[in-house]
Each structure stands twice: as C-alpha cells, then as structure tokens.
Simulated scan of single mutants.
Amino acid sequence: MEKLFIKALHALTKSIRDMKDHYPSANPKQPTNVMVYLLQQLETFVSTIIGSVTIGGRRWFLPKMENRLVSSIVAATNDETVTTDRVKKLVRKLQAILLDCLDVISVVCMFVTRSGCMYRCFMQGDIKSSNIFSDMLATNPSWSRIVKRIVRKQKNIRVTIAESHLNTPTECIILIQYLYQLLKALDLNIISVEIALARRAMGSRKVKLGAGQRFQNMNDKVWFLQKTMQKTLGVPVTVTRVEKLEEYHNITLQNKHFTLKILTTDGISYWWRGRIAKKIPEVDKLKKTPLLDMDLKNIATSVKGHKGIGYVVWYSPKGNTGADLPDNFSV
C-alpha cells in the first residue's frame, strides 16, 4: 500500500508541475501555493472515494463533493486565472491519474476498516434459492468485493438473527440457505447461531402474499428451524422466543474485529415464495434436503410502492464509536 501511495504522489506532483508550465501565474508565489494546497488535499481526495457512486470508474466523486473540492481550490489560490472550469478539469484529470496508480478497492477497504460503511441494494427479479446471497451481492459488484476483502482474515464469528415471520417451512429454508451461502461466500468459520424469533415484528404487515403449508404452532416452527439449521451448518443453534422485535430484521456476524449486519424491513424470507417445478416444496423433502434448490418468486414487485426487496449491508470495525445506525435509519 505504501508503494502505491508513493507512485500516486509522484503522479500527482508531475501533474502539478505540468500545470505550472502550461498555466504560469503573474504571482511568483502562486504556483507554490497551489502545489502545497493540492498536496494537502491528497489524503482528503482518497478519503472521499468512500462517498462514491461508482468505485473503480473514471469518476469517483459525487457531484456535490466534486463541486466542494473545486470551490475550495479556487478559493485557496485566490487568482483570477484559476477558474472553476480549469480546476474541475484538473480534478478530473487527477482522478484518472490516481486510478492508474492505485488499487481503488484496496484504498477503500483501508478506510472502511477504520470508519465503517453502509450501502443499500434492491432485488427485483425471480431467482434460484441456491443463488440468493450471490445475486444480492451482484447488485453492486464493487461493494461485494469490499465486503469480501474486509472480513477475509477474521474468520471465526458468532451469528445472531432477529426474525419474526418464518410461518412456513419454505421460509425457514430460505433463511437457512441464505446464511449458508453467506458463510461460504465470505469464507467464515461459524461458532454458534442465536435466533430471536418473534411472534410479531416491528411495523410488520398483517398479510403476506404467497402460499405454502403453515406451521400449526410456534413449537413446530422452533423445532423445524432449529433442527434443519443445525443439520445444515453443523453448529449449535439456539432459538429464543420473544413477543415482538425491537429492531429491524437482521443477520449479524460478529467477532472481536468487526460487526457485519444484513438488515431487511420484513426479514430475509418474507417477500420470496419458494417453488420446485411450480409446486410448493413438501415438508418431508425440506427436512431431508435443507439445501434443496428452489425457484424463488419475488412477490414484492407485485405490491404497489415496492421497487424490490431491499437490503442494507452495514459494516463497523471494533472500536468505531461513530458507526451506530442513525435514528432515522430505514431499509
């Protein structure tokens, strides 16, 4: 990483010298001021990559960030020849120069592991249950690479889950398959699973579209979920019944290094209807083969006001005091 920054610094100073040669100022001190100011901006410049729209593209800045940086440079130079358009061209040129010198994903990961990150994604189509986690990550490939990179050497984790619905065996299996795929994709060693299973959810809808054989009672639901998850993951699973969830449905991975949460409004399984050859899977078949591949129909897209099934991925390093979810957080 240090070598990459040195290469980037050399590229930056060369571009500034080129600017001096092509745009001389009447003020003999002015070129020095510009150079000093832009050098001081290097760390800020790299930090702002985290607030990007597209990581790894030629344009990293959000328009608001770009305008703020350009305005700051124009004000700092205090020279009428240093116009907004001229500085904007320079900033975009520097972005392209740094792109050729830096592994952008590595730079972002370096800052993320210190300060945390959060991003949203939406799934809008029908999928195979064997691809549910990978298809979710595929909605934003750059952030998928970041999530995998920041947890790759911190393998031993505990899992806690907050869920409420899971009213059919199929919904339980979707949750189990999702968690199984998550652990495999991130190459993590799971120690244990603790599930808070509520009768009611925070702000839950009363009616769900979809079909499937429902559990007769809460005892059947707890038994099925616990036994099939233990069989699939090979670790202890504890299910605790609670009356109502006090937080969003989530899957939380945690160890001494980090916390990684996947949050949804209604739970991992709520908006999916599982089928095999257009038939709802039988309970006995699901018990025997929890990783049975199913066609999952996205029923959220048929509900007015829903643009898909929303997920939030939230990462916080240990000791990051500023990484709590905001009070007005929503999925």
Score class of each variant (00 low, 15 high):
Lys14Arg: 14
Ile16Gln: 07
Ile16Val: 15
Asp18Glu: 14
Ala26Trp: 04
Ala26Glu: 11
Ala26Thr: 12
Asn27Gln: 03
Pro31Thr: 10
Thr32Asn: 11
Tyr37Ile: 14
Gln40Asn: 08
Gln40Tyr: 06
Thr44Tyr: 13
Val46Cys: 12
Gly51Glu: 13
Gly56Pro: 00
Phe61Ile: 05
Lys64Val: 10
Met65Pro: 04
Asp79Gly: 01
Val82His: 02
Thr84Glu: 12
Lys88Ile: 05
Lys89Met: 07
Val91Gly: 07
Arg92His: 14
Lys93Gly: 13
Ala96Gln: 11
Asp100His: 09
Val104Gly: 02
Ile105Thr: 15
Ser106Lys: 15
Ser106Gln: 14
Thr113Pro: 04
Asp126Lys: 02
Ile132Ala: 00
Ser142Phe: 09
Ile146Lys: 06
Val147Met: 07
Val147Tyr: 07
Val147Asn: 05
Lys148Leu: 01
Lys148His: 04
Arg149Tyr: 10
Ile150Trp: 03
Arg152Cys: 11
Lys155Phe: 05
Arg158Met: 13
Val159Glu: 03
Val159Gly: 04
Thr160Ser: 15
Thr160Asp: 09
His165Gln: 11
Leu166Tyr: 03
Glu171Cys: 06
Leu175Ile: 09
Gln177Val: 09
Gln177Lys: 01
Gln177Ile: 05
Leu179Tyr: 04
Lys184Met: 10
Ala185Lys: 10
Ser192Gly: 14
Glu194Lys: 15
Ile195Met: 11
Arg200Ala: 11
Phe215Leu: 04
Gln216Val: 12
Asn217Gln: 05
Asn219Leu: 07
Trp223Phe: 13
Gln226Cys: 12
Lys227Trp: 08
Met229Glu: 08
Thr232Gln: 06
Gly234Cys: 05
Val235Pro: 07
Thr240Lys: 08
Glu243Asp: 11
Tyr248Trp: 08
Asn255Leu: 07
Thr259Asp: 01
Thr265Phe: 05
Ser269Tyr: 02
Trp271Gly: 05
Ala277Pro: 01
Ala277Gly: 01
Ala277Cys: 07
Leu292Ser: 12
Asn298Trp: 03
Val303Leu: 12
Lys304Ile: 14
Gly305His: 06
Gly310Ser: 09
Val313Ala: 03
Ser316Gln: 09
Pro317Thr: 04
Gly319Trp: 13
Ala323Tyr: 00
Ala323Trp: 01
Leu325Arg: 04
